[in-house]
């Protein structure tokens, strides 16, 4: 508990987490407001309100990566390891605090997006009536938290802000979406790429949308929604485990 308090103090006594939180919420909620306000009739649905989540998620991943890379950048990681020689505990505490913040941001972003859409289009059917509806909205909390774990792992491994952010952005924005272009095996590989898989957990087979275009491309994963989440979690924690072993072994 002490270590969690330490990381909480560290996280909230600098400004970047606050900015990151505000930007992520503004993107998710602003996107929902825009799409709902400009949409044709019959477009607005639970699914369409969550259109902007992926972009907000990217901001949260940058926030998570920065939480650890700035410690390397400014040398405070050495002060941290000096105060807490058990590096694995120290880094696990940081992961817990940062992913908890990500969970909160994910929930706020998702319900905020739903709420503002309900205000703008009071006649649209935005009630959460099915398990798929709930996953589409509340599920963002879990996805944000796990994506933060993954981003932290990348940050621990690379130690440099620019490198970690570049890798995360290029991977999520470019590599995953371009993989299907590879002839023959491209789409099979893409089927197992983590951010494609986790979209399955959120939007399933598109049942939350009034029209198929009311959201990002649907996942090509063949896993069930909860298995998809488990797969994403396994990758995030797998990478975290590798990062912790590396941090434990190398010189700080």
């Amino acid at each position: 508990m002490t270590l969690l308090a330490v990381e909480r103090i560290k996280l909230f006594t600098t400004r970047s987490p606050w900015w990151g939180t505000l930007i992520a919420l503004a993107i998710a909620i602003g996107f929902a407001a825009l799409t709902t306000a400009t949409a044709d009739e019959g477009f607005v649905s639970v699914g369409s309100t969550q259109f902007g989540q992926f972009f907000a998620l990217t901001v949260v991943m940058v926030l998570a990566a920065l939480a650890i890379t700035t410690e390397y950048r400014f040398g405070t990681i050495r002060t941290t390891f000096q105060a807490i020689p058990n590096r694995v505990s120290a880094l696990l505490a940081k992961t817990t605090v940062v992913s908890s913040l990500a969970l909160a941001i994910g929930l706020l972003a998702a319900f905020g997006a739903l709420g503002i859409s309900a205000l703008i289009a009071p006649d649209a059917n935005l009630a959460l009536t099915s398990a798929a509806d709930w996953r589409q909205v509340a599920g963002n909390g879990l996805v944000y938290a796990l994506a933060a774990v993954l981003a932290l792992a990348v940050g621990i491994l690379l130690r440099h802000s620019a490198a970690a952010i570049a890798i995360l952005l290029i991977y999520t924005a470019v590599i995953e979406s371009l993989t299907p272009i590879i002839p023959e095996i491209g789409s099979t590989i893409h089927e197992w790429m983590p951010f494609n898989v986790v979209e399955k957990f959120l939007s399933g087979d598109g049942g939350t949308r009034a029209v198929a275009e009311a959201g990002p491309p649907l996942s090509t994963s063949t896993l069930s929604p909860w298995l998809a989440l488990a797969y994403f979690a396994a990758i995030a924690f797998g990478m975290l485990a590798v990062a912790l072993v590396v941090a434990h072994r190398r010189d700080a």
Binding site: V6, T13, T14, Q82
Partner: peptide
């Protein structure tokens, strides 16, 4: 360890956006 060994290795090992008090607060807490 901070109660046994106090060390100043590099004075720049602080986050530039964190106040002096906050910096010491998390160290004390740990």
């Amino acid at each position: 360890p901070l109660r046994t060994v106090g060390a100043l290795i590099d004075a720049r090992w602080v986050h530039p956006n964190r106040s002096a008090r906050s910096h010491l607060r998390w160290m004390a807490k740990s």
